[in-house]
Design a binder for these strands. Structure first.
Length: 257
DNA sequence: ATGACTGATGGAATCAGA
């Protein structure tokens, strides 16, 4: 089965691109981020017509996450990280799909550094750590998929020296990502392609995509029982070259049945 | 070098993204 994550940068503007991609690649489960649409205006009918059950948490203007499942209804488990009731951002959604537990997450950007936004990013990361530990402890096969807004290593940045003070590449943020890996999560794309330059985001300006000046910030982290089924992983770069594309491309994994 | 695009809101200019 194939599972993908895609930061769409606005589902209203991106619906044709997303529907074409679903039609062409027919992934079994899809995590979407940056819906940028209120809950009641999410185009659920378009996804149902394409053969996907869907759960989502929207928000006006910013954020917003969804989970699609081909031919079945995802069962929502958490509509937010469960350890801060004051946090109103729609950045985390967790559901069960056919015995798999899957989370669609959109980690805060955190720029500029330092700032309250960067503090919020670090706090959000530590809340994710706390929750991820309980997910691992449960033993349920789990995937954390989404836009982590972290380039884990210099191999994941076209020009690492220019990003040293950026919130996506600061040492404490990379360390937070490393801790997740150390605790037992598998970075699917990097595990199957240890030495390859692979990007998932290219900024819109300065011909970044044409120059391949990209970042790898969208990730699928696998719990051990899912990692043992990992057989393929990659990025659908062609989607970044579509008409009116997102600035991110879909990232996918293939699992044995 | 923080600029350069793009999307959402609202109906222009501003915020936010990464």
């Amino acid at each position: 089965m194939r599972i993908a994550t895609f930061n769409v940068n606005g589902i209203t503007a991106r619906l044709p691109v997303v529907l074409n991609w679903l039609e062409a690649f027919r992934p079994d489960i899809v995590c979407l981020q940056e819906l940028k649409i209120p809950q009641e205006r999410f185009p659920a009918d378009a996804f149902r017509a394409a053969g996907y059950g869907v759960v989502w948490h929207g928000q006006i203007s910013w954020n917003g996450v969804a989970i699609l499942a081909k031919g079945t209804e995802p069962e929502e488990l958490h509509g937010a990280l469960p350890n801060d009731p004051e946090d109103r951002h729609s950045r985390y959604l967790e559901a069960e799909v056919g015995g798999l537990r899957i989370a669609s997450l959109y980690l805060p950007n955190g720029n500029p550094v330092p700032s309250p936004k960067f503090d919020y990013k670090l706090r959000w990361f530590s809340r994710l750590h706390e929750h991820a530990a309980s997910l691992l402890a449960s033993g349920v096969p789990t995937i954390l998929a989404g836009d982590f807004n972290v380039m884990p290593t210099a191999l994941d940045v076209y020009a690492p020296e220019r990003w040293l003070d950026d919130a996506l590449f600061r040492p404490e943020v990379r360390e937070a990502f490393r801790r997740l890996i150390a605790e037992g999560w598998t970075d699917a794309v990097r595990t199957l392609h240890p030495d390859q330059r692979i990007y998932t985001f290219w900024k819109y300006y300065r011909g970044a995509f044409e120059r391949d000046a990209g970042l790898r910030i969208d990730h699928l982290l696998l719990s051990p029982s899912v990692a043992s089924r990992l057989e393929a992983a990659g990025v659908d770069r062609g989607v970044r070259g579509a008409q009116r594309p997102s600035d991110h491309a879909p990232v996918w994994i293939g699992l044995t049945d």
